[in-house]
């Protein structure tokens, strides 16, 4: 496979995952603003922070407020992190790697782009927003479904999956990076345990509300939220799960190519942390420091994968 194609697949699935995660974060913000309007603006601020786009946003808007944030994250084409830009990038990468995709995967991503381009061509009114967000989640899920159902399990599939989980873990870590303080034990002493708006946002933004409740049988506390989002291997969005998958797929690549690569060892080191540490150990180490270190390692791993598999010259 061409190095360029491997890179195209990796990025195609990163962009798709990103657009879906952005939609989930907007969903969480919307929920807060509908149910607890007093907390809304600070929630939108932390969502902008989690996307890493505060500076770009403030160049275009004076204040952080719901409608402007939603527009910026969904449909501002000058914002490279917006859903429409991400979906367009995903589709451009799909065109680039068209020969590596089945017809089903290509059609799913092409239709995803056509539908969202149409839906996001005009400003979104409040009452349309839930449907638009649902469409984003649904259309990206179709692509994933087509990938599962129709693609050979070979290097092409591996690069697609590595891109997916790399982006998912990265997005999760960014949310944790912005919100870590609400999960610290000291904060949990303050306020009502079961009615913490902050906890709800973080679970919603990572699409983990129901899963978390199932696992904890209804009890909510910050320690178990942190544990669930980082270490629970049953959750397809946890850092441990994502890195397990990345490691699997890098391993399959090594088997197929018969080559051992530095990127595998780096991923092994990162994944190892999730195996070896308990949530208590992470808190002892410092939650914020742990996440910051993870984000650094993740950046380095992305760079190494690009080198090892010759995405660019």
């Amino acid at each position: 496979m061409l190095g360029k194609t491997a890179g195209g697949l990796f990025w195609m699935f990163r962009y798709l995952e990103r657009s879906e995660n952005t939609a989930r974060m907007i969903d969480a913000g919307l929920r807060i603003s509908l149910t607890r309007s007093s907390a809304a603006d600070s929630e939108w601020a932390s969502i902008i922070d989690a996307t890493g786009l505060r500076e770009a946003y403030l160049q275009r808007h004076e204040q952080i407020e719901g409608p402007a944030v939603i527009d910026f994250l969904l449909r501002d084409k000058t914002n490279p992190g917006s859903v429409i830009a991400a979906v367009e990038n995903a589709r451009n990468n799909a065109r680039l790697v068209r020969t590596a995709l089945t017809r089903e995967v290509w059609e799913a991503v092409n239709e995803c782009y056509m539908v969202l381009k149409d839906k996001l061509s005009r400003p979104i009114r409040d009452r349309e927003l839930p449907i638009v967000l649902q469409t984003i989640r649904q259309r990206t899920a179709f692509v994933r479904g087509a990938l599962h159902g129709t693609m050979l399990r070979n290097d092409i599939y591996d690069f697609a999956r590595i891109g997916t989980f790399f982006e998912r873990a990265d997005n999760m870590a960014r949310i944790l990076d912005v919100k870590y303080y609400i999960l610290l034990p000291s904060v949990s002493q303050v306020g009502s345990m079961s009615d913490n708006v902050q906890w709800e946002t973080i679970l919603r933004a990572t699409s983990s509300v129901r899963a978390y409740q199932t696992v904890t049988e209804g009890d909510t506390d910050p320690r178990s939220i942190a544990e669930f989002l980082m270490l629970d291997r049953r959750s397809p969005r946890s850092l441990a799960f994502c890195y397990g998958k990345i490691l699997d797929n890098l391993g399959y690549l090594e088997t197929q190519y018969g080559q051992h690569m530095p990127s595998f060892e780096m991923a092994e080191k990162v994944a190892g942390r999730f195996n070896n540490y308990s949530v208590e150990a992470i808190f002892d180490f410092g939650l914020h420091e742990f996440i910051a270190e993870f984000l650094n390692d993740s950046r380095a791993l992305g760079y190494q994968i690009e080198q090892d598999y010759r995405f660019i010259e």
Binding site: M1, L2, G3, K4, D155, Y257, Q259, Y309, E313
Partner: peptide, 18 residues
């Protein structure tokens, strides 16, 4: 595309993952 190719050992070769 052109930038995937170069001359290597007397052949035109493409940059693959390997």
């Amino acid at each position: 595309e052109g930038h995937d190719l170069r001359v290597v050992d007397g052949r035109v070769a493409m940059r693959t993952t390997q």
